[in-house]
């Protein structure tokens, strides 16, 4: 059975206090890598791994880390897990590693990780910190996946590289086929999709959180 505290963490990280839509964290990668669904998925999985294990290790070490160097230690822990992800991708899925290019290394700069380690893991027990890490990672990943779905669909006319829009448009009688929205492939397209997602999420949220009240 999930305890009340765990249920609260899940609800908070996935929706009520979602790192992207409510805390507006991790925006750089949200804009940069969400134009291809597969890259976004792999980056999201990498972030969940780094987030979960960094949270676990920080929580395990929370009582021995000197206060004045805690952020240095947290950065060291995050960087170590990011390097592990990078090595594993290069060794076992080199194609994806190539496609993601520098973005794997940039997981370390994702503010969500540092934010959650500092706000939650450094003051909570390991199981809860691990759960928070996983849920924050999932909370981030599903948002970027939704954005990536629409950006790839409209920008390239494909999903996971398979043509979707072109056959659809042609079957509707438009012989010239799907005209790609180049704007969606570029970073400004990410801004628009993110803004639309936040708008929709805030509208359907029962609490309807206002950023000015934070």
């Amino acid at each position: 059975m999930i305890s009340a505290k765990s249920a609260e963490i899940i609800k908070d990280d996935l929706w009520k206090n979602n790192p992207v839509t409510v805390q507006i964290l991790g925006i750089c990668s949200t804009l940069a890598v969400t134009n291809i669904f597969l890259n976004t998925l792999i980056l999201g999985l990498g972030l969940i791994f780094v987030m979960a294990f960094s949270a676990l290790v920080v929580s395990l070490m929370r009582n021995i880390i000197p206060q004045r160097v805690r952020m240095m230690v947290q950065t060291l822990i995050i960087a170590s897990f990011v390097v592990i992800v990078d090595i594993v991708l290069k060794a076992y899925v080199p194609d994806i590693s190539k496609a993601l290019g520098p973005y794997v290394g940039l997981i370390i700069t994702n503010c969500i990780i540092m934010g959650r380690l500092e706000a939650f893991s450094s003051s909570n027990r390991p199981p809860l910190a691990f759960l928070d890490g996983v849920m924050s990672g999932i909370g981030y990943t599903y948002v970027i996946l939704v954005i990536a779905f629409f950006r790839e669909l409209l920008g390239f006319g494909t999903i996971l590289g398979y043509p979707v829009m072109d056959p659809l448009v042609r079957s509707l009688g438009y012989s010239e086929g799907w005209i790609q929205w180049a704007f969606m492939i570029m970073a400004p397209g990410g801004f628009f999709m993110l803004a639309i997602f936040i708008w929709v999420a805030n509208n359907i949220s029962t609490t309807n959180i206002s950023h000015s009240e934070k």
Partner: peptide, 19 residues
């Protein structure tokens, strides 16, 4: 942490070079 990473790197190096 560097020691842990060095071990992981060393065990994967041959495969990465081959790739």
């Amino acid at each position: 942490f560097i020691s842990v990473l060095a071990v992981i790197n060393e065990t994967s190096r041959a495969r990465i070079i081959q790739n």
